[in-house]
């Protein structure tokens, strides 16, 4: 129980008549990287918003670090950090000012020091005193993630951290995520890219039509794919194929 960073049970959410989450269940272990995989509109952001106390669920329970998100939102906020789907940076401030602002809001004793460290860690030192409106997409995303690391929260939510990035910037973000996990931070990330989940995650859950249709390690997910194929060379199924196979099965039922 205490080893779970996130516990979600029977989570439901509708927007008017649109029933987006129809009973979502999963747990995320402390210190792991968990990837929530789903197509456009699957409800990934909705789950992230509920877990980060931005949105109230209609039914079911969700606990973050042992605190119920609906009844103890203040306690939940103490230990989490959110990097939303769309960069939540202040365009008019400089990169450094953005980081100092967050450090002040987290009541750290040396905001400047914290900002300097993160700027150099994310390769933004040269651009530190430029307004964020002049940053490239990749730089902006890096700053966005850096802002989420201020105060070293135990659990970080990254909602599609690499969407809209070029391959190089994507690799940089991947590297950052891996480093986070090495330092013991729990990472909850959503993605539409199967290779991203494959690359990063300890566990992968696939969200489709309102429920989790598959949940396991990469090896476990690969086992779910029927291997009965006669081929000259043995070919490992990619996650993409597993995904399509599972969705296909569901839809023919």
């Amino acid at each position: 129980m205490q080893n779970q960073a996130i516990q979600v049970k029977g989570l439901q959410k509708s927007y008017k008549d649109l029933h987006v989450l129809k009973g979502v269940d999963f747990v995320v272990g402390r210190g792991s990287i968990f990837a929530l995989l789903g197509t456009n509109g699957a409800g990934k952001t909705t789950i992230v918003k509920i877990l980060t106390t931005l949105l109230k669920q209609d039914g079911g329970n969700a606990a973050v670090n042992g605190f119920d998100v609906a009844s103890r939102p203040d306690s939940v906020r103490q230990s989490i950090s959110l990097t939303g789907q769309f960069a939540a940076v202040d365009e008019i401030l400089t990169g450094r000012e953005n980081l100092i602002m967050i450090a002040r809001l987290r009541h750290l004793t040396h905001p400047r020091q914290v900002a300097d460290n993160l700027l150099s860690r994310f390769g933004l030192t040269d651009a530190a005193d430029r307004r964020v409106s002049t940053y490239s997409g990749g730089m902006r995303r890096r700053l966005d993630i850096a802002m989420s690391l201020v105060g070293t929260p135990q659990l970080i939510f990254l909602d599609e951290p690499t969407s809209g990035l070029d391959p190089e910037a994507r690799l940089e973000v991947w590297k950052t995520v891996k480093e986070l996990a090495q330092n013991g931070t729990t990472v909850f990330l959503t993605t539409q890219y199967l290779d991203e989940a494959e690359q990063l995650a300890d566990r992968i859950a696939i969200l489709h039509e309102g429920t989790i249709i598959a949940n396991g390690t990469l090896a476990e997910l690969k086992k779910m794919f029927p291997p009965a194929r006669v081929e000259y060379v043995e070919k490992q199924p990619t996650l993409e194929e597993i995904f399509l196979a599972i969705i296909g099965k569901k839809e023919t039922k």
Partner: peptide
């Protein structure tokens, strides 16, 4: 419109 309020609202302030 931008995400900055969401960031603030997910913080302990």
């Amino acid at each position: 419109q931008r995400g900055i309020f969401e960031r603030f609202h997910s913080m302990p302030i």
